[in-house]
């Protein structure tokens, strides 16, 4: 039996989500016994010219060239996974859609900068049809393995649409709000096993919001905890700027 051809590609991103796979350790050996890894720039230099069984695409789409490359990948792929926050929601790159480009660039680089032209930031599903979405900045390795085995084993899989609070309570963390901090856990899509809060950090909302967030209610809660509307909008929009074109959330 031929093993399924699996490939990883990246668009605008830090490639940190692919690094999560490179860092899997022993599980990576099990995966390699299961699949034929045909392209993965971060760990190998071979290329593949045939069809891909499963393509993991990391990064957001910021140029016409990237969109064209993605469309070609889609045509050659049986299954396409939007892999990581940049691919799933546009990620932090999406801030470009909310904040003027010049302001962003000068904030990050001062006046010493040289940048490629971009034209808006899009998540993968805003350009081509996506079969599965793996959220997270970075993706959660355990969730990646569950998705991969589900795809290869023919079992249905859905990204969690529960708030981060659900898993955070399972882990019996003391709530960040009780600890005098604010946190986006209540409206952020879970599936990460409340990774950040388990390690003493707040939730930054890296997976974007749940599919049907009570945004107004959450704003009210954050305001009651002393946050100004502008800061709330900034926090909520940090990973979701590209999605504003979708449905206003």
């Amino acid at each position: 039996m031929t093993r399924p051809k699996v490939a990883f590609f990246d668009f605008s991103c830090c490639e940190g989500c692919q690094l999560q796979v490179a860092n899997l350790g022993e599980a990576l050996l099990d995966i390699l016994a299961l699949v034929d890894l045909v392209e993965f720039r971060e760990v190998m230099s071979e290329k593949w010219s045939g069809r891909y069984s499963v393509t993991f695409a990391e990064g957001s789409i910021c140029s016409d060239e990237a969109a064209e490359k993605l469309r070609k990948l889609r045509e050659r792929s049986d299954v396409l996974v939007a892999y990581g926050s940049c691919a799933a929601t546009g990620g932090v790159n999406g801030m470009q859609n909310r904040i003027p480009r010049e302001k962003l660039i000068s904030t990050v680089y001062g006046d010493q900068w040289r940048a490629e032209e971009t034209r808006g930031v899009r998540a993968i599903h805003q350009v081509v049809k996506v079969d599965y979405t793996l959220f997270g900045c970075p993706i959660n390795p355990a969730e990646f393995l569950r998705l991969l085995t589900a795809i290869l084993g023919g079992i249905s899989w859905h990204a969690s649409d529960n708030a981060v609070c659900v898993e955070c309570k399972f882990n019996e963390n003391v709530c960040m709000y009780d600890r005098g901090a604010t946190c986006l856990g209540p409206i952020t899509r879970g599936g990460c096993n409340s990774w950040c809060v388990n390690n003493g950090n707040v939730c930054y909302g890296c997976r974007g919001m749940v599919s049907n967030p009570n945004r107004a209610g959450a704003e009210e809660v954050l305001q009651a905890h002393g946050l100004k509307p502008e800061l709330i909008a900034g926090k909520m929009g940090m990973y979701t700027g590209a999605l504003e074109a979708d449905d206003g959330t």
């Binding site: 599980a27 099990d30 995966i31 016994a33 299961l34 393995l145 569950r146 085995t149 589900a150 290869l152 084993g153 079992i155 529960n162 708030a163 609070c165 659900v166 309570k169 399972f170 709530c175 856990g185 209540p186 409206i187 749940v210 049907n212 967030p213 009570n214 209610g217 959450a218 809660v221």
Partner: peptide
């Protein structure tokens, strides 16, 4: 906010989901 805290911490909520989780040998 539908965060689910109320039901997660409830001593009498007993609803559950059932999932199949294959090993890496499939």
């Amino acid at each position: 906010l539908s965060c689910g805290n109320c039901t997660s911490v409830c001593p009498t909520c007993f609803c559950f989901d059932i999932l199949d989780e294959p090993e890496l040998d499939l």
